[in-house]
Design a protein around this nucleic acid. Sequence first.
DNA 1: TTCATGGTTTGATCGTAAGCGAAGTATTCC
DNA 2: GGAATACTTCGCTTACGATCAAACCATGAA
Lengths: 234, 234
Amino acid sequence: MNVASSDADISVSAVAAAIAEPARTRMLYCLLDGHARTATELAIVAEVGASTASVHLATLAQKHLLQVQAQGRHRYYRLTSPEVAAALEALSIIAASPRARFEPNTPNRLRAARTCYDHMAGALAVALHDRFIALCLLTAGPRGDGMYDLTDAGTVAFAKLGMDIAHARSSRRRFACACLDWSERRPHLGGAVGAMLLDAALKRRWVVRDMDSRALRLTPSGRRDLRTRFGIEG
Amino acid sequence: MNVASSDADISVSAVAAAIAEPARTRMLYCLLDGHARTATELAIVAEVGASTASVHLATLAQKHLLQVQAQGRHRYYRLTSPEVAAALEALSIIAASPRARFEPNTPNRLRAARTCYDHMAGALAVALHDRFIALCLLTAGPRGDGMYDLTDAGTVAFAKLGMDIAHARSSRRRFACACLDWSERRPHLGGAVGAMLLDAALKRRWVVRDMDSRALRLTPSGRRDLRTRFGIEG
DNA sequence: TTCATGGTTTGATCGTAAGCGAAGTATTCC
DNA sequence: GGAATACTTCGCTTACGATCAAACCATGAA
C-alpha cells in the first residue's frame, strides 16, 4: 500500500461516510434536482429535528458536498458540483442492481420522467436524446468522450424553443454531454443545453414538477407538442 | 417524500456505509484492478486482523459489492461489477477535487499509469486512447453513448499485437467503451478491448505491474515500441 | 489419522456519532 | 424596540459497529 493510494482511501471513506448517514442521504437526494433548499426544508425531508439537520448540513458542507449561501435569515444549501450528483447516481446504480434482478420492471413515476441535477432524466429524456440524434439536431463530439454538439439545424430548432444557445456556448459549463441514465441504462442529454431544455420544457408546460420529489409529469399539451415537433410517440 | 425515493435512499445509505469504513475502503481500492484476492491478503492491505477482515468481507458481499469464489481452502473476493468500480471512481473524483484546488499537480506514480478494474488508466492510457482515435484505429459509436468500435485498420493493428478481436466481439461483455479517467478527467479505453490491450501491454512488457499497488511502470522498451508503433512521445 | 493452514463465529470491550431539547445568535416584520 | 422566525451551539443520553482474542470449522498435506 503506497502513501498516495491510502491517502486517497481515507478521504474517500470520509466522503462515503458523509453520504452514508440516512438523514444526510435523504437531504442529498432531495437536492439532486439542482435546486437550493433551506435548512428547515431539508430537516423536514430528512425527518430529523432542526438542530440535528444543522450539524448534518455542516458536515456535508465541510466535506465539500454542499455549498451554502446565506440570504437574509435563510441559508440555502445546494450540491457543490455535477460530480457530486454523478457519484450519487453511481451509488444508486449499484444499490438498485441487485433488487432489479427480482423486480425488473418496477412501475415507478421516477422511471418515466424525473430531474437529474438540473436537467431531465428517465424514459422521456432518453427518448428525446435519441430523437435529437436521429433528426440530426445533435451529434456526438469528435473526441468520443461523451461530449455533444448541436448541428446548425439543432441550433435553429432549439432557438425556436427560446433557448439562448450562444450564451450556453460562452458559459464556462460543459455545453452538452451524455449523462448515463440509471433507470434506462442509456444516455440522456446533460450539460448547459440539457439544463436549458428542462427550463424550456417547464416554461412551455410540456412537463410539470411533482411537488416533493424529483418526478416530472408529462402534460397532455406537452405530449401533443412533442409529437408534432419531434415525432415522439408517448 | 414518496415511497419509491425513500426506498432508494435507504439502500444507497447502506451501500455508502459499506464503502465508508476505512478498512473496507482499502479492500475495495485494492480490488479496483479487477483481480481477485484471498481473505488474508485483503486483511493485510486493510491492516486489520483476520477475524475483522472476515466480517468486513461478509458485509461487502452481502451488499453485493463483492463476489466470493471458494477454491480449495482459499476464498477469493473480487468486485461484483464494473458499476462498483465506477462508483468508487466517482467517489474518488469528489474526494480529490477540493484538495486538487490547492495542489493541482501532485506528482504521483498513479497519475502516470495505473490499472482501472482490468484495463489501463492514467496519462498513458489517455494518450493511447487519443492516439488510437487520431490514427483512425478507433471510432466513437453511432449512438453517442460512449461506445467505441474498431476500424478495419484498428482490427489489423490490434491483431498484430496478438489480440483476439473476434473473440472480444462474441463475448457478452461490452466490446469497447469510454471510461472516464479520474486523474486526467478525460476518457480512456475500457471494455473487452481495453482489457485485452492491458494484457498485451503486460505480455510485451511495455509496462510492468508495481507490486502492491495499481501503479504501472512504462519500461524503456515499451517507450520505444509505443513511439515507433503509434508515434507516442513519452 | 493427525497436523497445519485458511477462514469464520462468538463474546466482550470500547469509541464514535446521531439524536433531542434548551439556550443562544442573528435577521426580519410589526 | 419587541416579537417572531431561522438557524446554530451545547450538554446529555443512547446505540450501533469496529476491534481483537479465542474457540471453532474446513481443507490439504504428511
